[in-house]
Computed example of a mutant assay.
Amino acid sequence: MSVEGLSVLVTGAGTGIGRSIALCAAREGAFVTAVGRRAEPLREVADKSPGTIEAVPADVTADGAPERIVAAALERFGRLDAVVNNAGLARFGRLADTGLDELDAMLAVNVRAPAALIRAALPHLEPAHGSVVNVSSVAGTLAMPGRAYYGAGKAALNSLTRSLARELAPAVRVNAVLPGPVDTPLWHGAGMTEDEQESLRAGLLADTPMGRFGEGDEIAGWVCRLIDPEQSGWVTGALIPVDGGRTA
Protein backbone atom coordinates (compact mmCIF):
# COMPACT_ATOMS: atom_id res chain seq x y z
CA MET A 1 0.00 0.00 0.00
CA SER A 2 0.97 3.64 -0.41
CA VAL A 3 -0.31 5.16 2.82
CA GLU A 4 3.17 5.78 4.20
CA GLY A 5 3.45 9.29 5.62
CA LEU A 6 -0.27 10.03 5.41
CA SER A 7 -2.08 11.50 8.42
CA VAL A 8 -5.18 9.41 9.09
CA LEU A 9 -7.90 10.13 11.66
CA VAL A 10 -9.90 7.12 12.90
CA THR A 11 -12.92 7.37 15.22
CA GLY A 12 -14.06 4.51 17.43
CA ALA A 13 -10.43 3.38 17.41
CA GLY A 14 -10.19 1.89 20.88
CA THR A 15 -11.81 -1.47 20.16
CA GLY A 16 -13.22 -3.67 17.42
CA ILE A 17 -13.00 -2.65 13.78
CA GLY A 18 -11.66 0.82 14.59
CA ARG A 19 -8.75 -0.64 16.52
CA SER A 20 -7.93 -2.89 13.57
CA ILE A 21 -8.08 0.07 11.17
CA ALA A 22 -5.78 2.21 13.31
CA LEU A 23 -3.21 -0.58 13.62
CA CYS A 24 -3.45 -1.46 9.91
CA ALA A 25 -2.78 2.14 8.89
CA ALA A 26 0.11 2.43 11.34
CA ARG A 27 1.68 -0.83 10.10
CA GLU A 28 1.58 0.56 6.56
CA GLY A 29 3.44 3.69 7.64
CA ALA A 30 0.63 6.18 8.24
CA PHE A 31 0.41 8.53 11.21
CA VAL A 32 -2.84 7.86 13.04
CA THR A 33 -5.01 10.02 15.27
CA ALA A 34 -7.01 7.44 17.22
CA VAL A 35 -10.26 8.81 18.66
CA GLY A 36 -12.60 7.16 21.15
CA ARG A 37 -14.63 7.83 24.27
CA ARG A 38 -12.46 5.78 26.64
CA ALA A 39 -8.84 6.74 27.23
CA GLU A 40 -7.49 3.37 28.39
CA PRO A 41 -8.28 1.33 25.24
CA LEU A 42 -6.86 4.16 23.12
CA ARG A 43 -3.63 4.15 25.12
CA GLU A 44 -3.34 0.40 24.58
CA VAL A 45 -3.69 0.94 20.82
CA ALA A 46 -1.16 3.79 20.83
CA ASP A 47 1.32 1.68 22.81
CA LYS A 48 1.38 -0.87 19.98
CA SER A 49 2.88 1.71 17.62
CA PRO A 50 4.68 4.39 19.66
CA GLY A 51 5.25 7.63 17.83
CA THR A 52 2.83 6.91 15.00
CA ILE A 53 -0.51 6.66 16.85
CA GLU A 54 -1.81 9.62 18.85
CA ALA A 55 -4.62 8.82 21.31
CA VAL A 56 -7.32 11.50 21.49
CA PRO A 57 -10.13 10.69 23.94
CA ALA A 58 -13.32 12.39 22.75
CA ASP A 59 -17.05 11.84 22.35
CA VAL A 60 -17.73 12.46 18.66
CA THR A 61 -21.24 13.72 19.45
CA ALA A 62 -20.16 16.42 21.92
CA ASP A 63 -20.45 20.09 21.00
CA GLY A 64 -17.25 21.29 19.37
CA ALA A 65 -15.75 17.78 19.27
CA PRO A 66 -15.15 17.67 15.48
CA GLU A 67 -13.12 20.88 15.56
CA ARG A 68 -11.12 19.74 18.61
CA ILE A 69 -10.40 16.35 17.06
CA VAL A 70 -9.21 17.85 13.78
CA ALA A 71 -7.08 20.39 15.67
CA ALA A 72 -5.45 17.58 17.66
CA ALA A 73 -4.52 15.72 14.46
CA LEU A 74 -3.05 18.86 12.93
CA GLU A 75 -1.12 19.76 16.07
CA ARG A 76 0.43 16.30 16.30
CA PHE A 77 1.09 15.49 12.64
CA GLY A 78 0.84 18.82 10.82
CA ARG A 79 -1.62 17.69 8.17
CA LEU A 80 -4.73 15.59 7.58
CA ASP A 81 -5.05 13.26 4.61
CA ALA A 82 -7.88 10.90 5.53
CA VAL A 83 -10.83 10.59 7.88
CA VAL A 84 -12.30 7.21 8.82
CA ASN A 85 -15.70 7.51 10.46
CA ASN A 86 -15.91 4.23 12.33
CA ALA A 87 -17.54 5.17 15.65
CA GLY A 88 -20.97 3.58 15.83
CA LEU A 89 -23.89 2.88 18.11
CA ALA A 90 -26.34 -0.02 17.88
CA ARG A 91 -29.64 -0.38 19.70
CA PHE A 92 -31.84 -3.26 18.61
CA GLY A 93 -35.54 -3.79 19.29
CA ARG A 94 -38.93 -3.92 17.65
CA LEU A 95 -40.62 -0.63 16.83
CA ALA A 96 -43.35 -1.03 19.47
CA ASP A 97 -40.75 -1.64 22.18
CA THR A 98 -38.11 0.92 21.25
CA GLY A 99 -38.42 4.62 22.00
CA LEU A 100 -37.53 7.40 19.60
CA ASP A 101 -34.77 8.44 21.99
CA GLU A 102 -32.89 5.34 20.83
CA LEU A 103 -33.30 6.46 17.22
CA ASP A 104 -32.03 9.93 18.10
CA ALA A 105 -28.98 8.49 19.85
CA MET A 106 -28.05 6.29 16.90
CA LEU A 107 -28.54 9.06 14.34
CA ALA A 108 -26.32 11.33 16.44
CA VAL A 109 -23.42 8.85 16.37
CA ASN A 110 -23.96 7.08 13.05
CA VAL A 111 -24.97 10.01 10.80
CA ARG A 112 -24.60 13.43 12.38
CA ALA A 113 -21.14 12.87 13.84
CA PRO A 114 -19.62 11.65 10.54
CA ALA A 115 -21.14 14.61 8.68
CA ALA A 116 -19.82 17.05 11.29
CA LEU A 117 -16.32 15.55 11.26
CA ILE A 118 -16.09 15.59 7.47
CA ARG A 119 -17.23 19.21 7.51
CA ALA A 120 -14.60 20.17 10.08
CA ALA A 121 -11.85 18.29 8.22
CA LEU A 122 -12.75 19.50 4.73
CA PRO A 123 -10.52 22.62 4.67
CA HIS A 124 -7.54 20.33 5.29
CA LEU A 125 -8.60 17.34 3.17
CA GLU A 126 -9.17 19.42 0.02
CA PRO A 127 -5.62 20.75 -0.41
CA ALA A 128 -4.26 17.29 0.44
CA HIS A 129 -6.54 15.63 -2.16
CA GLY A 130 -7.51 13.40 0.71
CA SER A 131 -10.23 10.87 1.33
CA VAL A 132 -13.03 9.83 3.65
CA VAL A 133 -14.03 6.27 4.47
CA ASN A 134 -17.28 5.71 6.34
CA VAL A 135 -17.69 2.37 8.11
CA SER A 136 -21.34 1.63 7.48
CA SER A 137 -23.09 -1.77 7.51
CA VAL A 138 -25.01 -4.13 5.28
CA ALA A 139 -27.88 -3.19 7.60
CA GLY A 140 -28.22 -0.08 5.46
CA THR A 141 -29.09 -2.16 2.40
CA LEU A 142 -31.17 -5.02 3.85
CA ALA A 143 -34.58 -5.25 5.50
CA MET A 144 -33.89 -5.59 9.24
CA PRO A 145 -36.97 -6.45 11.32
CA GLY A 146 -36.20 -5.66 14.94
CA ARG A 147 -33.32 -3.43 13.85
CA ALA A 148 -35.16 -0.87 11.74
CA TYR A 149 -33.74 2.20 13.50
CA TYR A 150 -30.18 0.94 13.14
CA GLY A 151 -30.67 0.07 9.48
CA ALA A 152 -32.24 3.44 8.76
CA GLY A 153 -29.21 5.24 10.18
CA LYS A 154 -26.79 3.17 8.13
CA ALA A 155 -28.87 3.75 5.00
CA ALA A 156 -28.59 7.47 5.69
CA LEU A 157 -24.81 7.12 6.04
CA ASN A 158 -24.68 5.29 2.71
CA SER A 159 -26.63 8.09 1.06
CA LEU A 160 -24.38 10.70 2.66
CA THR A 161 -21.36 8.84 1.30
CA ARG A 162 -22.57 8.79 -2.29
CA SER A 163 -23.83 12.36 -2.31
CA LEU A 164 -20.64 13.77 -0.79
CA ALA A 165 -18.55 11.74 -3.25
CA ARG A 166 -20.12 13.77 -6.07
CA GLU A 167 -20.18 17.04 -4.15
CA LEU A 168 -16.53 16.93 -3.05
CA ALA A 169 -14.99 15.43 -6.21
CA PRO A 170 -12.38 15.66 -7.54
CA ALA A 171 -10.58 17.12 -4.50
CA VAL A 172 -11.78 14.58 -1.91
CA ARG A 173 -12.79 10.95 -2.40
CA VAL A 174 -15.61 9.57 -0.22
CA ASN A 175 -16.31 5.84 0.07
CA ALA A 176 -17.82 3.38 2.53
CA VAL A 177 -17.26 -0.19 3.56
CA LEU A 178 -20.33 -2.20 4.57
CA PRO A 179 -19.35 -4.97 6.99
CA GLY A 180 -21.55 -7.95 7.56
CA PRO A 181 -21.60 -9.57 11.00
CA VAL A 182 -18.30 -8.99 12.78
CA ASP A 183 -17.67 -10.06 16.37
CA THR A 184 -17.06 -6.73 18.14
CA PRO A 185 -17.99 -5.09 21.47
CA LEU A 186 -20.82 -3.28 19.63
CA TRP A 187 -22.98 -6.31 20.32
CA HIS A 188 -22.73 -5.92 24.07
CA GLY A 189 -24.25 -2.44 24.03
CA ALA A 190 -27.12 -3.22 21.70
CA GLY A 191 -29.72 -3.54 24.45
CA MET A 192 -30.29 -7.29 24.09
CA THR A 193 -30.29 -10.08 26.64
CA GLU A 194 -27.74 -12.87 26.25
CA ASP A 195 -30.44 -15.17 24.83
CA GLU A 196 -31.47 -12.51 22.32
CA GLN A 197 -27.86 -12.02 21.30
CA GLU A 198 -27.36 -15.73 20.76
CA SER A 199 -30.55 -15.99 18.72
CA LEU A 200 -29.52 -13.05 16.54
CA ARG A 201 -26.01 -14.40 16.05
CA ALA A 202 -27.36 -17.80 15.03
CA GLY A 203 -29.66 -16.18 12.48
CA LEU A 204 -26.87 -14.05 11.05
CA LEU A 205 -24.57 -17.04 10.67
CA ALA A 206 -27.33 -18.99 8.93
CA ASP A 207 -27.73 -16.10 6.44
CA THR A 208 -23.99 -15.73 5.77
CA PRO A 209 -22.74 -18.01 2.97
CA MET A 210 -19.18 -18.06 4.31
CA GLY A 211 -20.54 -19.59 7.53
CA ARG A 212 -18.64 -17.46 10.02
CA PHE A 213 -18.38 -13.98 11.48
CA GLY A 214 -15.89 -11.58 9.96
CA GLU A 215 -12.83 -10.27 11.74
CA GLY A 216 -11.78 -6.69 12.28
CA ASP A 217 -8.61 -7.08 10.23
CA GLU A 218 -10.66 -8.20 7.22
CA ILE A 219 -12.56 -4.92 7.28
CA ALA A 220 -9.48 -2.84 8.07
CA GLY A 221 -7.64 -4.07 4.99
CA TRP A 222 -10.34 -2.66 2.72
CA VAL A 223 -10.39 0.65 4.59
CA CYS A 224 -6.63 1.01 4.21
CA ARG A 225 -6.91 0.26 0.48
CA LEU A 226 -9.54 2.95 0.05
CA ILE A 227 -7.28 5.47 1.83
CA ASP A 228 -4.39 4.58 -0.48
CA PRO A 229 -4.35 7.13 -3.33
CA GLU A 230 -2.40 4.81 -5.62
CA GLN A 231 -4.69 1.80 -5.30
CA SER A 232 -7.96 3.73 -5.05
CA GLY A 233 -7.29 7.11 -6.58
CA TRP A 234 -10.12 6.60 -9.09
CA VAL A 235 -12.57 5.14 -6.55
CA THR A 236 -15.20 7.40 -5.04
CA GLY A 237 -18.85 6.96 -4.14
CA ALA A 238 -18.34 3.22 -3.67
CA LEU A 239 -20.28 1.21 -1.09
CA ILE A 240 -18.20 -1.93 -0.70
CA PRO A 241 -19.80 -4.89 1.10
CA VAL A 242 -17.32 -6.97 3.09
CA ASP A 243 -19.86 -9.40 4.44
CA GLY A 244 -19.10 -13.05 3.77
CA GLY A 245 -21.76 -13.09 1.06
CA ARG A 246 -24.54 -11.78 3.32
CA THR A 247 -25.91 -9.48 0.60
CA ALA A 248 -25.36 -11.91 -2.29
Score class of each variant (00 low, 15 high):
residue 159 S to M: 14
residue 141 T to P: 01
residue 161 T to Y: 04
residue 188 H to R: 14
residue 101 D to S: 07
residue 105 A to D: 11
residue 121 A to Y: 02
residue 125 L to H: 11
residue 121 A to W: 07
residue 77 F to M: 09
residue 188 H to W: 06
residue 193 T to W: 10
residue 99 G to S: 09
residue 156 A to P: 04
residue 200 L to H: 08
residue 136 S to D: 15
residue 131 S to Y: 10
residue 92 F to Q: 01
residue 124 H to D: 08
residue 183 D to R: 12
residue 196 E to M: 01
residue 174 V to K: 04
residue 131 S to A: 15
residue 153 G to L: 01
residue 134 N to V: 10
residue 141 T to C: 10
residue 133 V to A: 07
residue 142 L to V: 14
residue 120 A to M: 00
residue 104 D to R: 11
residue 104 D to F: 10
residue 127 P to Y: 10
residue 132 V to M: 07
residue 114 P to K: 02
residue 101 D to V: 05
residue 123 P to R: 09
residue 114 P to C: 05
residue 146 G to T: 09
residue 179 P to A: 02
residue 146 G to K: 01
residue 158 N to R: 11
residue 188 H to T: 15
residue 119 R to C: 09
residue 173 R to P: 13
residue 118 I to E: 02
residue 123 P to F: 02
residue 142 L to R: 09
residue 150 Y to D: 05
residue 119 R to D: 08
residue 148 A to G: 10
residue 98 T to R: 02
residue 198 E to A: 14
residue 185 P to D: 07
residue 188 H to K: 13
residue 77 F to P: 06
residue 157 L to A: 06
residue 127 P to C: 09
residue 195 D to M: 02
residue 194 E to G: 10
residue 163 S to G: 11
residue 152 A to Q: 06
residue 160 L to H: 01
residue 105 A to V: 01
residue 135 V to L: 01
residue 177 V to E: 08
residue 200 L to V: 12
residue 181 P to N: 04
residue 181 P to R: 03
residue 198 E to T: 14
residue 94 R to T: 14
residue 131 S to T: 15
residue 200 L to E: 09
residue 116 A to S: 05
residue 154 K to M: 13
residue 82 A to K: 11
residue 175 N to R: 04
residue 169 A to H: 10
residue 183 D to I: 12
residue 74 L to R: 07
residue 94 R to N: 14
residue 170 P to I: 13
residue 161 T to C: 13
residue 102 E to Y: 05
residue 197 Q to L: 12
residue 98 T to A: 05
residue 122 L to A: 13
residue 178 L to V: 00
residue 90 A to I: 00
residue 120 A to Y: 03
residue 103 L to N: 08
residue 109 V to K: 00
residue 113 A to D: 06
residue 109 V to S: 12
residue 169 A to M: 07
residue 115 A to F: 15
residue 192 M to D: 03
residue 181 P to M: 09
residue 192 M to S: 06
residue 180 G to Q: 07
residue 144 M to K: 06
residue 86 N to M: 03
residue 199 S to N: 05
